[in-house]
Design a binder for these strands. Sequence first.
DNA 1: GTGGATGCAAACTCTTTGCACCTTG
DNA 2: CAAGGTGCAAAGAGTTTGCATCCAC
Lengths: 140, 140
Amino acid sequence: MERNTRQRTAIRQAIETAGRPLLPAEVLEAAKREVPGLSLATVYRGLKALVEDGLLATVSLPSEVTRYEVAGHQHHHHFQCLGCQRVFDVHACPGDLGRLAPPGFSVESHDLTLYGRCGDCSPKKPTLDAKSKKVVPIRC
Amino acid sequence: MERNTRQRTAIRQAIETAGRPLLPAEVLEAAKREVPGLSLATVYRGLKALVEDGLLATVSLPSEVTRYEVAGHQHHHHFQCLGCQRVFDVHACPGDLGRLAPPGFSVESHDLTLYGRCGDCSPKKPTLDAKSKKVVPIRC
DNA sequence: GTGGATGCAAACTCTTTGCACCTTG
DNA sequence: CAAGGTGCAAAGAGTTTGCATCCAC
């Protein structure tokens, strides 16, 4: 049912190689090195198919466009660097948060996002312009 | 510098009356009862101006369009009902989460979203179709 | 009276979809 | 060879903006 096309392989490899959640545009940029003619529509269709197949998982953060990462990680959260805007996995969790909800509310799940500086963007080093939404692929 | 127009007054009152974060479309719907000819563009401009004036605050949740609430609350988080999709304030916080970050990462802030059922949408009662993105203003 | 605010429509960004052509199994 | 995948362009949803008109101060 799911075909192995060069395009989908390139999409999956782009995300596996990155090791962190990627934006569709980042996936396109990386996968284009394998399949130059790749179109953004195919990236979207491929990402959706791979998520439905359980190979990828979506990562959505407040005010941010959906990113994609390899599936299979257990419950975890994310960290977004205020310097380079990149997103990283956080394999830790504050635990049960049901007690925080108001009376009468039942909690089934939660999302947590940490913000700060990644190892490459310590406060001492120059940071990228947070206003340019462009995600710079190089180390910052 | 900031003028008191009927439109902006209606926008502010819509959010104050709701007592919970509202979507721009919800603000338009509510404010239209005061100013029938109100346009969505004016709602967006009004919301932005009121945020810049410090009267409103933005609320953004994963995979969700930005909502707006009255400013002035101290640090808090949000709860989204899986039944009616409405968002409520949670005046509680798990506390310092810096310890969750990987080594080399510094945490400056965090966002937490709880998901579950609000008092009106207990698991026993019928729930709204989660797939219809339409936010129903009535109690569910 | 004048500058900020409004309404409308067009523009923009991100994502999805229709359709003809191509490719995998 | 047939079903599914791809590329392109057009269509959608949400948001912003240009511009002529309007109105609060």
